[in-house]
Design a protein around this nucleic acid. Structure first.
Lengths: 209, 209
DNA sequence: TTCTACTGACTAACCAGTCAGTCAACAAGA
DNA sequence: TCTTGTTGACTGACTGGTTAGTCAGTAGAA
């Protein structure tokens, strides 16, 4: 009996182990293209190179497959970002730039972008997913950003503004540009990091104590 | 036995004239709830109090009904806003505030909000709708906002920033809060106009020459 | 040979779109 | 005003196509 995944490569056991991820990856692509209701599991299967029945060996039904896609992609990288914030001891504007840049980096990755758009479209149908997203990602993220803004205020670098109440709004240009590109990308593509850069420059100027 | 509920009011001619709007309104609600693929025309019909067949007397098919919903709701109020900008002769920050506030007012109206979310979810499937939206609303809107920012720069009220390149990003907090409320509104509702207010305060401060 | 991941034909359900039939509104004549 | 014929908005059962989900059978690794 082989011990590691690498050794098992090509064996049935290895294949079995790799299947769920393969399926989720393919499903993500098809869900992104056709939405939840519009997705045909046969298309997903074909993309993996298996038959539809196989999907049901790994996922209870279409809904569970969808949820797996969301959970798989979201992961939870919030913690490390928060640790960075705690350890940092330079000027707060630099810290804020770095953190916002990191979040933006994640938000604009293809898989994450896809999930963001899918959550917007299908969220109503999957309240548990939305609250998962809220409690695992959005909540801690907002809290973290809020903490950084507060740090700036405490250190006399930022003045007090309403932004403390809506720290997530710092990310709004990134979200808006992801949506913009999704809709109008063929005509006029926006570079989210450039949009963010511009936005941050102006905001940080306006925040200055 | 026929349903008599629909036959209460007005003449046949009046009824016929009112039908399309009734259908579009009902469809908007169901599309918003179930998405395009998920919407059953029977549900739409039931909401109006007519039978499914009647919908086909007024709309060629499901797609055309969807397009009618979008076109009906979007209208085109951009022109008047632009005229306001041309006529205004006070300080540019005040003008910008007023214009952004107006756009936000439209964006957050329930029907418009619904269309925004539907365009995000279903836009891929309806490229003509997206380009309609782009050419009728977004393009002129962006141009108008850009003009106002330029006015500020010309009058020495604003400094030159990258914002001129992405004027629509001024609206990003509104878009982000519409999406936020759509997803998380049950837990923590954001007041888009408050978010916008905060955002504008900071941005205008940062834009100051 | 045994075991099991996988197959794909099948079923049951669903729904967009159709169309022959219905009946209330209207018109016109008595 | 009443009667009667016509019109056309509307109905809803039906069709045809689609797809989620099942399961008896297969193939190939161990």
């Amino acid at each position: 009996m082989p011990a590691t995944a690498a050794q098992k490569k090509g064996t049935r056991a290895a294949q079995k182990e790799a299947r769920p991820k393969e399926i989720v990856e393919a499903a993500l692509a098809i869900f992104a293209r056709d939405g939840f209701a519009g997705t045909r599991l046969e298309d997903v299967a074909e993309r993996v190179g298996i038959s539809k029945g196989t999907i049901y060996l790994y996922f209870e039904n279409k809904e569970e497959l969808f949820k797996a896609c969301v959970r798989e992609t979201l992961g939870s990288h919030v913690k490390e970002t928060m640790e960075l914030a705690a350890a940092f001891d330079g000027p707060t504007p630099d810290l804020l730039r770095e953190i916002v840049r990191r979040i933006s980096g994640r938000l604009t990755k293809p898989a994450y972008r896809t999930i963001l758009l899918l959550l917007i479209s299908e969220g109503q149908r999957f309240p548990e997913l939305v609250s998962f997203y809220h409690s695992e990602i959005i909540g801690p993220g907002a809290e973290g950003l809020g903490g950084v803004i507060q740090r700036g205020i405490d250190r006399g670098e930022f003045k007090e503004t309403g932004l403390s109440k809506f720290p997530m709004m710092l990310m709004s240009p990134v979200i808006a540009s992801v949506i913009w590109n999704h809709l109008f990308g063929d005509d006029v593509e926006i570079d989210p990091s450039e949009a963010l850069q511009t936005h941050l420059d102006t905001m940080l100027d306006g925040l200055k104590a």
